[in-house]
Design a binder for these strands. Structure first.
Lengths: 254, 254
DNA sequence: AAGTGGTCTAGACCACGTC
DNA sequence: ACGTGGTCTAGACCACTTT
C-alpha cells in the first residue's frame, strides 16, 4: 500500500542510458500503474499531492511535476481548491478531443451516434496487424452513422478486439445516449488515451453514397484511426467516411 | 536594458480577474517581446536562466517555468549543458511540424518544393478576411508543387500579404533550396508559430489533375491553412490539393 | 478554519558540453 | 574547471473550495 517498489536517484548514471529515469518519471509511472489497476476510477479524485508524496517518500514538488505531465497528457485534470481528478470521456469537454469535425457555417448541433450494425467475426490480416492480435482471433465489428442534426455526415466501421468487449451488442449501443468512448469507459473500463489518424480522399461507393445521401463517386474524406489505451495497447481500429459538403476536418498545428 | 517594466505579484487579486497573471507568465511575455523585437535571432542562444533571472529580478525557478512553457510552445529549444536556443525553421526537425504528409509505403524521399508561379494581386474578399488586411491591399500569390522523389503530390496556392513580403519573386523562390518557412524566416524575419488547417475532400479539376498526373475528377484532399506569427497575426493563407494515391495525411490525436 | 492546488523562492547536487 | 540546463528538496504564502 505504501512502499512503491524500488525508487532510485540514478546517481552516476548516464541520462542517455536506457534505464535512466528521473524520480518524477518513476512517480509518474507508479501513478499510471495505479490508474491502470483501477485504484481510482474516471471522474474521481486522486489523493492530494501531500498524501502521494508521503506514500512514495518524495517531496511534494516531485509529485507535482509528475502530475503536471499527466495533466498535460490528458490523463488527469487539476481543479484548484478541490483536488486532482482522473480524466473521463463522460466529461463533455472530452467530446471533441477525438472528433475533429466542425460545420462550415455556424451550425451548433451536437453530433449524434446512430448504430447500424454490430456483429462478430474473426480478425483478418489487416485487423490483426492494426489491433496487435492473432489472425483469426475474435473481433466485433460495429457500423454506425454520425449525424449533425438531421444531416448524415460520417459513416464509421469500427473493429474491436472481442477479448476486451465482451457483451457488446447492437442493443447495448442503442441504449447508450452518450459518446462511444464514454460507453467503452463506463461499460468496459477502457480509457482511450491517444489515437493516430491517416486521412485520404476517396470516391463514395454505392453503399456509402446511399447512407450519406450523396451521389456515387462523390469525394469523401477517409479517416483511418487506431486508438490506444494504457501502455500503448491498440484497442480500436476504425475507418470513417466523412461527407465534407457541410463540414470540415479541423486541425490545429502547433 | 534591465528593468522590465511593471512586474507585480497580483496579491489579493482574483485569479479569474482578466488582469491577473502569475509572475512567470509576465516573464514569458517579456521574453516573447524580446524575441519579437529580434533581440535574439532564430538558431541563436538566449541568455542563461541565471542571467535572465537577474535581468528580471526574479528567481531562477520562475524564469525556468516561463522557458518551460515556451519550449512546450515550440518557441525555444533547450539543450542541456549548452543553453536555450530560439527555435528555427532551418532546423531539420521542424520540417514536418507543418507538413503532416507521409508515404503509404516506406518511401523515405524528402519533399522538394518546385515553384511554379509568383505574381502580385489585390486582396479579394476571402483573402482579406483570412489575412486580416483591407480588401484591395496588395498580396502576393505563389503556386508551387511539392514532389516526393519524382512523384508530384501536392499543389499549393499561397496568399501572402504584400506588406510583409517585399521583394518576393519567382527567382527568389527558385534560388532557395530549403523549405518555404525557412526562406520566410531567413529572408523576411518572419517566424511561423502556429497554423490551423481545414480539410475536405474534393474532385480534381482539369488543371490540378494535369499537374498532379491524375485523371480529372480524382478525389483529392483539400487542405486550407491559415498560419500565424507572433501575436496571433495571420501572415499566410494557402490552399493545398493533396494527391492521396501514395501518401496520406497523418494526425496524432492526444 | 481546514484542505487543496498554484506560485515563488533559495539552495544543493547532478549530467552534459566546452575549454 | 567552468557554465549550462535538469532534478530534488523544503518552506512560505496565495487563491479557491468546502465545512
Amino acid at each position: 500500500m505504501d512502499v512503491p517498489g524500488i525508487l532510485c536517484f540514478n546517481t552516476s548514471m548516464s541520462q542517455d542510458s536506457p534505464t535512466f529515469s528521473p524520480l518524477y518519471r518513476q512517480i509518474k509511472a507508479l501513478i499510471l500503474q495505479a490508474l491502470e489497476a483501477g485504484e481510482w476510477r474516471p471522474g474521481q479524485v486522486i489523493p492530494s499531492e501531500q498524501e502521494l508524496a508521503a506514500r512514495f517518500n518524495v517531496s511534494q514538488g516531485t509529485v507535482r511535476k509528475a502530475i503536471d505531465e499527466m495533466a498535460a497528457d490528458n490523463l488527469l485534470v487539476r481543479k484548484q481548491g478541490k483536488g486532482t481528478y482522473v480524466a473521463s470521456h463522460n466529461d463533455p469537454r472530452a467530446l471533441f478531443r477525438f472528433l475533429r469535425l466542425a460545420p462550415i457555417d455556424g451550425d451548433l448541433s451536437h453530433p449524434q451516434s446512430v448504430p447500424l450494425d454490430c456483429w462478430r467475426a474473426k480478425a483478418g490480416q489487416e485487423a490483426s496487424r492494426m489491433l496487435g492480435i492473432e489472425p483469426g482471433a475474435p473481433i466485433i465489428i460495429v457500423r454506425r452513422l454520425l449525424k449533425f442534426g438531421v444531416k448524415p455526415v460520417v459513416i464509421d466501421e469500427i473493429y474491436l478486439p472481442g477479448e476486451v468487449f465482451h457483451g457488446l451488442s447492437l442493443e447495448v449501443l442503442q441504449d447508450w445516449s452518450g459518446s462511444l468512448y464514454s460507453l467503452f469507459e463506463t461499460r468496459f473500463g477502457l480509457r482511450m488515451i491517444r489515437a493516430q489518424e491517416r486521412l485520404r480522399a476517396v470516391a463514395a461507393d454505392r453503399s456509402a453514397a446511399e447512407i450519406l445521401k450523396v451521389s456515387e463517386g462523390t469525394p469523401l474524406l477517409s479517416v483511418e484511426r487506431v486508438t490506444y489505451t494504457y501502455g500503448d495497447k491498440p484497442v480500436e481500429w476504425r475507418r470513417g467516411l466523412y461527407s465534407t459538403a457541410d463540414h470540415f476536418y479541423l486541425n490545429e498545428l502547433s
